[in-house]
Design a binder for these strands. Sequence first.
DNA 1: GCGTATGATTTGTA
DNA 2: TACAAATCATACGC
Length: 345
Amino acid sequence: MDEQPRLMHSHGVGMAGHPGLSQHMQDGTGGTDGEGRKQDIGDILQQIMTITDQSLDEAQARKHALNCHRMKPALFNVLCEIKEKTVLSIRGAQEEEPPDAQLMRLDNMLLAEGVSGPEKGGGSAAAAAAAAAAGGAGSDNSAEHSDYRAKLSQIRQIYHTELEKYEQACNEFTTHVMNLLREQSRTRPISPKEIERMVSIIHRKFSSIQMQLKQSTCEAVMILRSRFLDARRKRRNFNKQATEILNEYFYSHLSNPYPSEEAKEELAKKCSITVSQVSNWFGNKRIRYKKNIGKFQEEANMYAAKTAVNAANASAHGSQANSPSTPNSAGGYPSPCYQSDRRIQ
DNA sequence: GCGTATGATTTGTA
DNA sequence: TACAAATCATACGC
């Protein structure tokens, strides 16, 4: 097999200035008489050139005759080498590409989201991260988590099915082309190297399709994620009991409605919400109360009365009031109305 | 459908 | 960093 390149690169000038054929002719494969051999080759080339002018049957017969011609292997090798040195070498140089950075990014993202690579609970970690980013309480998001997981799992499944299809199609097409080229290499100057190159071209084409698949999968994950985050933003009213507890605290500490961290934690626990939700609630309440004290007057009076009753009951039973203690608390029963010396002004 | 209530977010400030 | 204020977006009652 290694015989041919050595023969082709040996010295001497052959047909069309190519050394390989000349050597073939001199080493016994091409006959003994130089002029005769040239004539031989000229005839072969002439036959090849005119083969398309003939009828199909004639052409087939001519093709067979040429295939069996004693000069055929040498001519074939020369043509292969010429082809290799011209078109293919240029194309080969052009097609050398560095590893695609975008593809790497897509791969990394798909891996991180749990779409590619080993399944890691359908991306529950990503869902949890998304939930954490949204600052959610976590108590009511289990349904949304499972929804997110289900949808991510769907994306994963589609991705893998499509990927499998592409790989199968790529393998089938590659095999087909390889067989075709091998078959054609009996009559056309197609070297194994060229077949190899063609295979790599096919792989490149298929990997660009694969990249499109990866890109659209990434987009789907992004959309799912943003929808999940949007869902986390959906407002849910606190239950009545939680609102009662928060209002009770607010109006019983009206002189200084700023619960300490400990009080916030206690309130959060009692209301089954997060500390930040307690902070949000107090922030909203303070500003809205301040903006419209008149509107809240009735509510304030009601809670003041309620707190008074609670306190009376507590003192009657020798126990303490129910509202969480706070270092900021002014103590006692504050007036239901804001005064000028209070912090909210 | 509309107005209001309300939880969450954003932005500016001390 | 906590808070005020403004704003957004949705829930809710009519």
